[in-house]
Write a protein that binds this DNA or RNA. Structure first.
Lengths: 217, 217
DNA sequence: GAAGTTCTCAATCGATTGATGGATACAGGG
DNA sequence: CCCTGTATCCATCAATCGATTGAGAACTTC
């Protein structure tokens, strides 16, 4: 199956070095051709429309439009589009959303060339390619309940180190109510106190690490 | 200054894609040549001895031997060696250690090609190149005291969500002692409770995020 | 051996936290 | 309309936490 068809790949990745690395790796592979690149979400959609790639490699963390949003929008107009999600950190909550949005596979940036190439071929052939470890974690997460918006607000404040009193004042509710929300979210996260809730929230990417240094808008 | 001297660069980076990207970017630049690559700390030292590069690009998070250790060991035998630290996340506590160990510059992986090239040239010319934002943060950190080993043990347990009683039992000391250590480390971290201590520890890279999923050996 | 660190422990006390039970509102489905 | 589920809110109370003070033992460093 030498010259069956060249797989046309679009690479969406904001880190210049990583994007260049992907292109350099892929362009020496037989049967794969990088036909476009994008460094942010908006450009990604433009490039997709222009080139209509077979397979799109996409980073999740990007300026302007997140990877998940890009996948959702593109699949609105091109449902058969095939995406492989790239991510640095595998605790990422967004992976789960991306796969729900229709991504077919998932790769860590520490992957080997063989991983990359075989995954691209598999996805182009219509297969999905989720590592067992991720599949299991996804299954676990399916069973767990989603946090309500209010619970999310409270969790965000907990991660930022606010006390119940401060959270109550910030959200303009009573301290007792804050405690109720905390109690609920502790149960949903499967933890027993606020410190565990904070680390779990960071680890799972529910509250992004980047938000910590900022003085909360 | 066209053909003054070709700068010989060694690239130490465990992520295959990133390494490939750096090499691809640098090899098209006039006056810079990548003369070696390494994917882990031990190999890094071997490659350094073999090629004696002018400038070494080095990632901090690596298997076998950390970037900081590599810098320290190489500078033991080659004090004039020049390092540029690469890192993904700029909250990294290790940056500070790397610069103390003798790194001359620091680059985020989201940098542009111009950043990369000009930094390599600057460092090769003997200059240092620390972004103002990092310099300021370093200055701040200089004033703060280091945690003692025991305080670090306790902080690690806090991040893992253990209660004082559990920490006491785990470290085989009394709960009172645990409280003493917590009191000290709260002061040194500049925070007021354990939840803030946990998020600060993660944010600054004092306790690595990867250690969270594991059931604590 | 004097000085400095670190680690250890204790006791007290006010503040914070988390568990529990319960109230209200509001949405479909039957 | 009633029932069920869900999200929001509040109060009480015991357990935990953090601040504070003081002090002895082990280990460096000079």
């Amino acid at each position: 199956m030498a010259a069956e068809e060249t797989i046309r790949v679009l690479v969406i990745e904001d880190h210049h070095v990583v994007r260049q690395g992907l292109v350099a790796l892929l362009n020496v592979v037989d049967g794969i051709e990088v036909i476009g690149e994008a460094a942010d979400g908006v450009d990604a959609i433009t490039q997709f429309r222009k080139h209509q790639p077979h397979v799109t490699l996409i980073d999740l963390r990007m300026p302007r439009l997140s990877g998940v949003e890009v996948i959702q929008r593109i699949r609105m107009e091109t449902p058969q589009a095939r995406f492989i999600v790239l991510t640095t950190y595998d605790g990422d909550e967004d992976i789960y959303r991306a796969l729900q949005a229709g991504a077919r596979a998932y790769l860590l940036k520490g992957m080997t060339t063989e991983d990359l190439v075989s995954t691209i071929r598999a996805v182009h052939a219509g297969k999905s390619h989720i590592p067992p470890a991720i599949a299991q974690r996804l299954a676990e997460r399916m069973g767990t309940e989603e946090l309500t918006p209010r619970e999310f607000d409270v969790l965000e404040q907990i991660v930022h180190g606010r006390s119940n009193k401060e959270i109550a004042s910030f959200l303009d509710i009573s301290e007792a109510t804050v405690k109720t929300h905390i109690n609920s979210l502790l149960g949903k996260l499967g933890v027993t106190d606020r410190t565990q809730a904070a680390t779990a929230a960071i680890q799972r990417g529910i509250v992004p690490l980047e938000s910590l240094r900022k003085p909360k808008q």
